[in-house]
Design a protein around this nucleic acid. Structure first.
Lengths: 242, 242
DNA sequence: TAGTGGTCTAGACCACGGT
DNA sequence: CCGTGGTCTAGACCACTAA
């Protein structure tokens, strides 16, 4: 189908070996030729061979062991690199009109015993924000978010009627660490009413915690009705980026 | 906290630059020093600098442009590298006892109009398998799977009372492409009864399609009660592997 | 067009881990 | 022990592209 013109030597080596593995010709445990053998076979320097093999090891296709050589690994766990979208960008990308309704925005203590505790433990200066996201005028997601005002003081004056808190944050502060949790939940009475569904409608809850260094930035919970939202990932074992 | 002893030059360069970016000292759009500048600064060869920068570009922290240089990128989209587990391994890893009950295993036509169609369109020789996964004797997940017997003929004789279809497949055939879809659903009457829940209990549905080349291998739907299962990912922008 | 990154070479030394 | 992979060097040519 597609033709590769960008055929560098290391890319050719990588592609050849990958083909051998994925076709099953080189089964799991199979010993990949030594670097010096590939060096001769492709008539190139050892550095070039090494780059190709390092790449394959990164992708989880082979395992490299000193003195022993490189061996084909078996992909035992499926990984999915899932893009967790900015809601506004996601809705616009789907061709719908984005709408936002701010329900609440005020300083409040961190609810103790709740899930936000771990990110914002001990933080006094916290902003709580609740809002509804709309796609073509229809409720699309409910969002409940805590923001550490010590980390992002500007957030106190932000206008979340125009820009959603998530969008605002990503353009105002970089994060160094993040956690995502995906779970199916039944919505609370209040949440169900806002989304125009019943409590028995399955929803996808997306929890996101972000840090910058040791400082917690934000904890957000987004609730999507199951029939209006899903997460999707398509990928190949050698292509873990994008 | 942790001390790096494995301090190669390229690792030091990479770590230094990463620290500058994540601390905010080098904001988005900031020009990273040219390769030849870093070469002098660290008193090493250009290849070493290059490896460090390539690594940072892979991680999405910088963007490299010919003639212009390298620039700090802003992490705008949240990605989650989620390990979608083999159910048996996952249950055992949680410290529970794994159990499996085969409910159905027989050849059948691909249900047309259903979600399996795209993977196994036109395939005549299809094996349908339904089973329940247990953790410590309690229903943990319901699985409905179609397997292309043209691609994996051995599956016809496999004993799915002992090994779950997913585990069996990953150890018998490699895949080249996969799709995952994650969505919240209300279970069917039958599924709810098998899992010991009601139809109004929110469940996480994991759909997985895998191919080997152009040939569809399998289409699986796994239903997890929302209160017994979640997907979790923790990561830093520079650490997209594992 | 000039200077950057992309790729490659033909060596080198070393740490490590099978034998 | 000794051969492997891990890392590094001091060059080189080329493709691309911003100025």
């Amino acid at each position: 189908m597609s033709v590769k013109l960008n055929t560098t030597i290391q890319e050719k080596i990588r592609a050849d070996i990958e083909k051998n593995i994925l076709s099953g010709r080189w089964p799991p445990g199979f010993k990949v030729p030594f670097e010096h053998e590939l060096e001769k076979q492709y008539d190139c320097s050892r550095m070039t061979v090494s780059k190709a093999l390092v790449e394959l090891a990164r992708a989880g296709l082979i395992q490299r062991r000193r003195r022993a050589g490189s061996f084909v690994e078996f992909p035992r766990v499926h990984f999915a690199l899932i893009g967790i979208p900015d809601i506004e960008a996601d809705i616009v990308a789907r061709g719908a009109k984005y709408g936002l309704k701010l329900l609440m925005q005020r300083r409040r203590p961190v609810p103790s015993g709740k899930r936000g505790e771990r990110v914002l433990a001990g933080v006094k200066n916290v902003l709580g924000v609740c809002c509804l996201h709309f796609a073509d005028g229809r409720p699309f997601a409910y969002e409940d978010r805590l923001i550490n005002l010590d980390a992002v003081p500007d957030a106190a004056d932000a206008d979340f009627n125009r820009t959603s808190p998530g969008t605002w944050l990503t353009s105002h502060i970089p994060w160094t660490e993040a956690e995502h949790r995906i779970v199916a939940v039944n919505p609370s009475q209040k949440c169900a009413a806002l989304l125009g569904i019943t409590r028995s409608t399955a929803c996808l809850a997306l929890e996101r915690r972000t840090w910058r260094g040791n400082q917690g930035i934000t904890f957000a919970t987004q609730i999507y009705p199951g029939d209006r939202f899903d997460l999707f990932a398509r990928f190949a074992p050698s292509d873990r980026t994008k």
